[in-house]
Computed example of a mutant assay.
Amino acid sequence: MAKEIILNINQSTTINAIVNKLIYDDDIDDITIKLSYEPGHFLKGEIFTVINAYIKHLESKKVICRFELLQNPCYSINYIARINFFKNINYPFVEDFNRHNSEGSLVEISEFNSKNMYDVVTRISYILSTVSDIDKDTINCVNYCLGELVANVEMHSKSNSNGLIYAQYFRNNILKIFIVDNGIGFYESFAENDEFNHLSEEDLLKKSLEEKFKSKNGGGQGYGLFHTKEFINLSEGILSINTCGKTLLSNKDYLSVINSNYWQGSIISLKFKTNCNVDYSQVFSANNDFYQPKIDLQELMEEYNNTNNEKLW
């Protein structure tokens, strides 16, 4: 059976809106993805990281996947070419721009596995090392948290395709990082542990940020997401986890799980301020208290989706 997906993307398009368009059906053996976009506006790299991951998922299922641009390329789409989206999906996009060295500003959409995952983490840490006035503690925290997150994908996702990571530094002192996998998702991974399989998806996602909360198989001590949450709180950032039809949003003032469109694995995003120096000892000696809501959820989601679209590359 053949299917067609049409994606209309503009600067306000969210990951959830894109995921809503994707098709998961074991009877489909041929999918054509057609893309249109809004010229003259910044297009978010995370959107294309998710599309890239979906195409990798289809390929792992031996589905024939075709991709089409519905309009002639313009400046807006050049950034998407620069972060290697077209290269990754083997689409013959003709680049009419000069590629400058990305070190210190972005990490293109990159596949990772057990052989190269820490190399990718090092590249992201290098971005921070080029930012003025950032201290070593903050870089060490990011290096540790990212190492834990990519290791979790490798150990627990059970994906038939590699994980993907993308990072972009913005000139308003914001770093955004996205880690996407096509695995079994948080709920199935943690529910393998008999101690947790009675929990709802919402409760399990919230507990995944608690200290020593871990899945039954694959090793690990249950500190990675907990310490990541603590770092995000101290750096005035936002942590988002999209998995199994739910999205968790967390910052220093808020923790909530909302319904979202179904993604078969997990989409983890970190957005934080690089000009907030973080005390390493505070992250790694934090207690287990959760924070009470102090802001409106809509405000948090708008902040999460907002991007400064200055020239980036």
Score class of each variant (00 low, 15 high):
Phe93Glu: 04
Glu195Arg: 05
Ile127Trp: 14
Ala81Asp: 15
Asn10Ser: 13
Phe190Leu: 06
Asp25Lys: 00
Asn10Met: 09
Asp137Trp: 02
Thr32Glu: 10
Gly147Asn: 08
Thr130Ile: 02
Tyr54Lys: 06
Lys3Arg: 14
Gly245Ser: 07
Ile9Met: 15
Ser157Arg: 06
Gly245Glu: 01
Lys246Ser: 04
Ser157Pro: 03
Leu249Pro: 03
Lys115Asp: 15
Asn277Asp: 12
Glu195Cys: 07
Tyr223Pro: 00
Glu111Leu: 05
Tyr75Gln: 11
Val107Thr: 11
Lys136Cys: 14
Gln264Phe: 10
Val283His: 08
Cys145Ser: 14
Val180Gly: 00
Val180Gln: 05
Ile124Pro: 03
Asp119His: 12
Arg123Gly: 06
Glu210Trp: 07
Ser215Trp: 01
Asn162Pro: 15
Thr228Leu: 05
Ile18Gln: 09
Ser110Lys: 04
Thr247Gln: 09
Glu95His: 12
Leu204Gly: 02
Asn113His: 13
Trp313Leu: 15
Tyr254Ser: 08
Thr130Cys: 04
Val142Asp: 02
Phe170Cys: 09
Arg171Ala: 08
Asn251Tyr: 00
Asn173Lys: 14
Leu146Arg: 08
Lys115Met: 15
Ile47Leu: 10
Lys294Gln: 12
Phe112Cys: 04
Ile268Ser: 00
Asp25Thr: 00
Ile267Trp: 03
Glu303Met: 06
Ser132Ile: 15
Met301Gly: 06
Tyr126Pro: 02
Ser256Leu: 14
His198Pro: 10
Lys44Leu: 07
Lys44Thr: 04
Leu205Pro: 02
Asp27Asn: 13
Glu211Asp: 13
Ile55Asn: 08
Ile258Tyr: 04
Cys141Trp: 05
Ser110Leu: 00
Tyr262Val: 03
Glu68Thr: 10
Glu195Leu: 07
His156Leu: 09
Ile51Val: 09
